[in-house]
Write a protein that binds this DNA or RNA. Sequence first.
DNA 1: TTTTGAGTTGTTCGA
DNA 2: GTCGAACAACTCAAA
Length: 473
Amino acid sequence: MTVLHWFRDDLRLMDNPALYHASQQGPCLYLYILDEAEHPGGAAKIWIYHALADLDAQLQGHLLFFRGKPEDILPRLMGELDADLLTMTRRYHASGVRTDAHITDALASQNKKTAIISGNLLWEPEEISKPDGTPYKVFTPFYRRGCLNAAPPRQPLGTPVLNHARKQAKGAVSLDALGLLSGRAWENTIAQKWDISAKGAKDRLDAFTNTRDRTGLNDYAEGRNFPAKSNVSRLSPYLRFGQISAHQAWYQAAENRDRQDKQLDIFRSELGWREFSYSLLHFNPALKTTPLQPRFAHFGWIENARHLEAWQRGQTGYPIIDAGMRELYQTGYMHNRVRMIVGSFLVKNLLLHWHHGEAWFWDCLFDADPANNSASWQWIAGCGADAAPYFRVFNPVTQGQKFDADGHYTRHYVPEVKDMPGKYLFNPWEAPADLRAAAGLRLGQNYPEPIVDVKASRQRALDSFAQMPKASQ
DNA sequence: TTTTGAGTTGTTCGA
DNA sequence: GTCGAACAACTCAAA
C-alpha cells in the first residue's frame, strides 16, 4: 500500500504518530501544500520556508511542494500517485477541520482512505471534560483536575524507518516557487536569530533542560518573569510548527528531576496553557473573532491609526513597551512578560481593539498559532476565559522597574534611552532636562514623548470597562 | 439544588 | 520603604 503523508503543523519525523502510522503501511510519499486561504503571517512564512528546507533534507529530497487549495490538489494527486492512504496530523482550527473533513469525503468516494491522527496535543479536547461532560472554562481545574487526572501523555515515538516511494507528481513545484520569501531584508534579519531546524529544536530543548546554573528550567518559576534572563524555554516557534512535540518537552523536562519539582510543575503547566487554548478553540470555533464573554460584543473600542502604528513600530514613548515591540519585529519573538505589558497597553491604555493586537502578532510572531494567539489576546483584553479583573491594568513604568530592574533588556532594544540612569529609564519624560541632555535623549526628536498619559488612560479604561453591561444582562 | 470558595501574571493608596 | 486593603461583580467548579 502506498501512503501519502500530508505535513502541516507537524514538520518533524520524530514523535509524529501520523507519519509513524504511514511508515507501517508501506512506501511513503510526502507532501506540503502552501494554502493561502489559511492566511499564514509574514513571520510564519519565513519559519515555514526554513523548516521545510530542513525537513526535505531529512527526507533526502522526497518532500513534494504544492501551492493551492488542498481540496483541489489532493483528490487528483492521490489518483495520480496511485496512493491508497492519506495520513495527516489532526488540527483544530475551524477552517482546517473543515478542509480535512471535505478531503476525507472526497477521497472516500474514490475508495481511498484517510487517517487523521492526533499528534500535536498532550490531551485531545474530548478527553478533558468536567464530570457532567461539558468542557472546562477555567484553566486551573482544566489542568489540575482534568489533564493531570487523565491518562498521562504518550511517551514520544522514535523516528520511523521510512521506505520512500519514488513518484513524479504533476504540478509539484520547488520550495522556492512556493513564494514564501519575498526578498525583504527583514526576512533574513529575523531568521538569523534562530536555528530553524530539527536540530535547532533539539538544541533549544536540551539547553533549556540540561543547565547546571540558574538558567533555563533550574530557575524557571522565578526567572521566567524577567525578559533579560535566560529562563524561558523559547520552544514556542518549534512547537507551533511541530518541529518538536509537546510530548518531547513534557518528558525531557522531567528527566533527572523530582516528581514534585516546582520548576518542572510550572513549566508543564505552561504546556497545559497551550492545551487549554486548543480546548477553547475546539469548543469555540470563532475564538479569533468573537469574545468568549458576549458582553464585550459592543465594547467601545477606539479607532486611532496613529496610536496603533506607534505601538506596532515601538514608538509609544514608553521604553518597556517599545523594547517589546521592537524585540518582536527584530526577532519574531517576544518574552512572555513583555507580551502581557504591551497587550495590556494596547487594549487598556490605548483602548484599541484586541483584534489589532491579534493581527499584528499573527503577522510578526513566529509562534502565533490559531489557538494561543486568539486565546491570549482575549485573556489580556478581559473578554476571554477566566478574564482578568477589569482593574488589572499593567503600569508600563512599574513593570519595567520590577521586571527589567537593571534595564539590560530595555537598553538593548531602545538604544535611544540606553544612557539614561535607572531611575528614569522607564519614565524619561519625568527626568530633569539636563539629565536627558547628558544621556543624548531629546524627547520629541530622537525618541517620542509618551503618546498617552499612563495615569489618565488607565482611569479612562477603568471607566469604559465599568460601563459595559453586566454579564447577566 | 444550593452553597461555597476560588479564579496566571496588578496597581494604588494610606497607614 | 513596606505592607495590607481595596479595587466588582461574576462565573465556574465542586462539595
